[in-house]
């Protein structure tokens, strides 16, 4: 069995999580606490990947990433890598389509942070920066882990966007979901089954972990 597509899927998922923790946490903070009306627009924009058909998102990303378009050509000239049919392009696409899966749980966690604790930190003279790092974030570890787990699961399972942006280049963009599709197309069901059963098992374990995390949180709040 060729493990490369699975390893590539895991690599893509891990890099996506790391990038999304960097982008998603400040964005979730803004959406949770900002009084600006722009947050409604931003929230709708961030949530788009949940409702859009992956092919629609993939199509527009393909257009935007094209070296003949402004964004694609700028990236190509700046870092010397084409975003179309490359692993870097897959990471960028993956970050965009997984954004709501990281943002939503983290934002919900931030919003449900005990307001009395935040108020107490303020009257103790703590800066907003300290309140974020020492009060809000430590009380939302479960939300961060849930966001990371959901991002991981979603990245692992995405097919439409990945196919449109990355195609199927072995060791570059041929992730597990693409490999399964190709094996089924060529009627190699046994090969397809090997990848599928591993993804199935991982997805189940991931969902079980999320359930366990939410159970732990409920128990903590009843203590």
């Amino acid at each position: 069995m060729d493990w490369t597509p699975l390893l590539l899927s895991f690599k893509l998922a891990f890099i996506t999580i790391i990038v999304l923790l960097g982008i998603g946490v400040p964005l979730a903070y803004f959406l949770a606490f900002s009084k600006s009306k722009s947050r409604y627009f931003l929230e709708a924009l961030v949530g788009l990947p949940i409702v859009l058909p992956p092919t629609v998102l993939g199509f527009y990303l393909l257009l935007a990433f094209s070296p003949h378009q402004m964004f694609g050509s700028w990236v190509s000239n700046t870092i010397g890598v084409s975003l179309v049919f490359s692993f870097v392009g897959l990471v960028v696409a993956s970050v965009i389509y997984s954004l709501p899966f990281m943002i939503q749980p983290v934002k919900n966690g931030f919003e449900s942070t005990n307001t009395s604790m935040v108020a107490l930190a303020k009257v103790l003279g703590k800066s907003n920066w300290t309140i974020f790092w020492k009060v809000i974030l430590p009380n939302n570890i479960n939300a961060l882990v849930t966001g990371a787990i959901l991002t991981f699961a979603h990245t692992l399972g995405e097919f439409g966007v990945v196919l449109m942006i990355g195609g199927s280049i072995p060791k570059e963009t041929k992730v597990a979901s693409i490999a399964i599709f190709e094996y089924v197309e060529t009627l190699q069901f046994e090969q397809a089954h090997r990848y599928a059963i591993i993804l199935l098992a991982i997805s189940f374990i991931i969902l079980l972990s999320v359930q366990f995390l939410s159970l732990t949180k409920k128990q903590q709040s009843y203590d």
Binding site: N114, S116, A119, L120, A121, V135, P138, N139
Partner: peptide
Amino acid sequence: FQEATMFTH
């Protein structure tokens, strides 16, 4: 505070 708030973590 009336509810004697502390940092639970």
